[in-house]
Simulated scan of single mutants.
Amino acid sequence: MSFQTALTGDVTLRELSKDDADALADAYVRNREHLAPWEPERPEEFYTAEWHRERLWTQVLENSAGRALYTVLESDGRIVGRLNLTDVVHGAFENGHLGYWIDAGFTGRGLMTRAVEAMVAHSRDELGLHRLQAATLPHNTASQAVLTHVGFERIGFAPSYLKIAGEWQDHVVYQLILHG
């Protein structure tokens, strides 16, 4: 099943495709400085289409196996953000983790809030998940605003949670219960 939804007249949230390598590399190059404080350190090769072409198929396979839902925000054929549902666990847990970023030129428009709302509805109604989880750096107030606007609640603090920008950094953990 292919996932796609219009967020605005010019931005669409859609499932990642095996043909997205060039557009992904372009998006990461364009946003390299913008994303550096919020993401793991990346090797130089990460910013090439070849790097993405070699690895993209695994994310597409994860999508088809139901273990993840990797998506992109697209505007006029350019990727302007990512929203990924990963670590999907079914059974007694029915849980997934959200991670996302938005292009520097598209911040402040409410796009990621709309994208997360669409992913929440899809996770609940189509994937049957019970809970979503997300973690943000304590000083990432924009990301926290997206989560709280959509209804996520803060549930904890995780010391040295992820290695971001070359350092193990604390994170604030949020959850959203989809079926009450």
Rank of each mutant, 00 (worst) to 15 (best):
L137V: 13
L132S: 14
R114W: 09
T58F: 04
Q144F: 04
H139P: 03
E54I: 00
R67A: 04
R30D: 03
I79T: 04
D20I: 03
E39I: 07
Q133S: 12
A36N: 03
H34A: 04
A135N: 14
A27G: 01
S17K: 08
D22K: 14
P159Q: 12
Y28M: 04
L129F: 11
R124H: 08
P37H: 12
R14F: 10
D22G: 11
T8M: 03
R67S: 11
V120T: 12
A65E: 14
V11G: 08
Y70D: 01
H122C: 01
H122S: 02
D87I: 00
L7K: 01
S64N: 03
F46T: 14
F46H: 13
Q175L: 04
V72E: 03
G128I: 05
G99S: 15
L61Y: 07
A6R: 09
Y28W: 11
E117A: 14
G166E: 05
F106Q: 14
R53D: 12
R78S: 05
Y28C: 01
Q4P: 00
H149K: 15
L137G: 09
E126S: 14
D125L: 07
A49C: 05
Y174H: 13
G99Q: 07
H90S: 11
G77Y: 02
L73F: 04
W51I: 04
H90Q: 11
V173T: 10
G128L: 10
G180A: 11
T12G: 05
V116I: 08
D125A: 08
H52M: 07
F106R: 15
G9N: 13
T71N: 02
M119P: 04
G91E: 01
M1S: 12
G128C: 08
K163C: 15
T86R: 12
D19H: 10
N31L: 00
Y28F: 11
R42K: 14
N84C: 14
R124C: 10
L7R: 00
